[in-house]
Amino acid sequence: MMRKAKEKPPNLAIKLAGISLKNPVMVASGTFGYGEEYAQLVDLNRLGAIVAKTITLKPRLGNDPPRIVETASGVLNSIGLQNVGIDTFINEKLPFFKEYDVPLIVSIAGETTDEYVQLAKTLQGEKITGLELNLSCPNIKYKRKLMFAQNPQATHQVVSRVRKAISLPLMVKLSPNVTDIASIAKMCEEAGADGVSLINTFTGMAIDVENRKPMLRQVTGGLSGPAIKPIALRMVYEVHKAVRIPIIGIGGIMTAGDALEFIIAGAKAVAIGTGNFVDPLIPIKVIDGIREYMVNNKIKDIKSIVGRLKCPKS
């Protein structure tokens, strides 16, 4: 009698910038707070990794409301990096993660290169898995008017200085509000980044025509959600061709199919942002959906499809 050999379950584990992840599905900065808020609804230990809300040296109050407005298949936000600041983060938010077995990536933002370096050094001794430099928040005005991620030299400088200051795995979060995102990603690679996260939100706006007023108090904000997915995907595709460091694909991921598109375009991991607001279980459903896809398509290891887009030869 023939016995069907028991299939080995597909392998979703990956190594990202030296970090071992159970699966390639993370939650994106700013959409998952400091983990506590969602812990009652989601088994945090099942997530590939958590990227915490961006923190700054000093606490920030954030922008005046309204800060959020829904648009066609998207969300505009202008939170303004409201956060408790690094000291309170370390003393009050970090201990929460001790209970969990999930990699924690801490996102930081400064107004100057020195601030990034100071933040990174402060976190070096803490129990965290990695750092993400948020060079791309569209909601705070830097002294130089541009975001770091819109200036190749500034990007190179901040990444290389932080790289020299710390040994933690180092990711850089890029802005889509640039003409050539691949060249910025290359800068990050040259400067010693271990990976790039893309993308942050697109600047956008919405208007209440009855009152001729902007829907957001700050007039403009950052667009996220399914509306930006095709552009995010194209950017991951372009960056994958340009760099060898791993890419975390972000932008409008709601389903396993969305996540797989990013993986095939070249992302080694993905992160869910706005999807958490729609259904806190989306990250878990995406993980389960990727596994099911792998079983159905006889894919043994997720790594084997990263960047394996089959383009017809021209």
Binding site: D64, R67, I79, N276
Partner: peptide
Amino acid sequence: EERLACGVGACLGCVVKTKGSTYTY
């Protein structure tokens, strides 16, 4: 009544200004 996104306190999208030493959200 405010427009909400996450509804659970994670996104900071729904704030109102309240009294503090100056103010807080």
